[in-house]
Computed example of a mutant assay.
Amino acid sequence: MRVLAKFGGTSLGNGDRVNRAADSVAAAVENGHEVAVVASAMGSTTDFLLDAIAFEADEADRAEIVSMGERTSVRMLKAALGARGINAVFLEPGHPDWPVITNARGEVDVEETQRRAKALADQLDGVVPVITGFLAQDHAGNTTTLGRGGSDTTAVMLGNYMGADEVVIVTDVEGVMTGDPSVVEGARNVGEITVDELRNLSFRGAEVIAPSALSYKSGNLSVRVVHYQHGDLLTGGTSIEGQFENLIDLREEPLACLTVAGRAIRNRPGINAVLSTALKEADINVDAVASGMDSLTYYVDASVAERAETILHECVVEDETLSSVTVEHDVAVIRVTGGELPNQPGVIQQIVNPLAENHINVHDLITSATSVAMFVDWADREEALRIIQSEFSD
């Protein structure tokens, strides 16, 4: 099996942890696996170096300075592996076999990086390359960086391009947890999670794996997150399943839009639970929910709109916080889904402006880290779909 192991800064935070990392790599090699390693800067080295730049430095100088953390890590790991009889070589920008190349805009040159990564993969038999994470090199040979979370991006990208069977992210958390163990009791490890679920969590504060890295995960590439104390690269942790699918989808059946208004509804704890529970108990599925300063809106199947209105009206009558419920019929929803959406500045404008130019009114816009849902008149659905498809056809 071909494995790419990425060791985060915490997992290389001191000599004992470097030894633990080297032991896990050596064990995998001795069991007959091909292993490549991506290393982050040890501990908080990168933050220390950035804080130490108390002067005006251009981007080239900054990149060279902060690169010293990763450059030190790969030398430490290479030496530790050598002490265990493992034939290892460290790779950093400037090395003839360095794989990660960026273009003039600072973006990854996919074609050249793929070519170099494949050439590196062809050398894995009997050799463990230890590669600096986060860093890249432009076509002129200058050191560049991949931005925040760049070591994770390096790992998953090279795992993909090198034909790895699995990428193992070694970090200071026991995989993905059901909640923050420092806040909630009984938090436990999640054995599996999809890329869509994890990306939504990552963009909302979960520090497990950089969201940018997940864009490089293919369906046949396994990615796993393990704790550095686990000591085994091949078992445990959380497995990240699937890959991002770029999709523009028009819901085939119409929806009804039910809006409940109320005075300072946003300050009424549990009001959404009250209304949602009432719909649930009537076996009415909610397709989407939108909230305003003084309202909550529920999108349900048009076929159950009348029953849903009756149920929500009963809630309005019983709760003095609520004023009224109204229904809008024949609403369509178009969803744009894709792992790259968060990396596309102006993506909302790219959707809304063409619709406005064609006099199509957007009733609601609901976003997550990986999708945008537009609600329009049912009569406008086909034209809206055509416009959105043309915007994302490239």
Rank of each mutant, 00 (worst) to 15 (best):
V352A: 15
I169S: 15
S291F: 07
A121C: 02
M162R: 13
G133L: 10
H95L: 05
V352I: 12
L50N: 00
V173G: 13
L233D: 10
I334P: 06
A369P: 01
R17M: 03
D301V: 00
R263E: 03
C257L: 15
E59V: 13
N19Q: 15
V170W: 12
V183R: 11
N200I: 15
T45Y: 05
P345R: 06
I351F: 14
V208L: 12
E59H: 06
E383H: 15
R84N: 08
D364E: 11
E92H: 09
A22Y: 00
A369Q: 01
T238V: 00
T45M: 05
V176L: 13
T238H: 01
E314K: 15
E111G: 02
V110T: 11
G339H: 06
V274E: 07
G150L: 04
M162H: 11
R2K: 14
E30L: 12
M293N: 10
A88P: 12
G179D: 02
S295G: 07
A256L: 00
G159N: 13
T46H: 15
E34L: 14
Y299E: 08
E174F: 05
V176E: 14
S11E: 08
D232P: 05
R115P: 04
V333S: 14
C257K: 12
L50D: 06
F203T: 01
P181N: 04
F134G: 04
T238P: 01
A119G: 05
V100S: 10
S215N: 09
I131H: 08
L341P: 05
A39H: 03
D138Y: 06
R263H: 00
L365P: 05
I271N: 12
C315S: 15
S371V: 06
E207P: 09
G262T: 14
E34K: 10
I284L: 04
A36P: 00
E59P: 09
L201G: 02
R386A: 03
S222H: 11
T310A: 14
I387L: 11
V18N: 07
V25R: 01
G205H: 00
A26V: 05
D232T: 02
R2V: 12
D196A: 08
G8H: 14
Q137H: 02
E241W: 15
V108Y: 08
R84D: 09
V18M: 07
M374I: 14
A22L: 03
G9A: 13
G231C: 02
E320D: 05
L255M: 07
T132V: 10
R335I: 03
E357R: 13
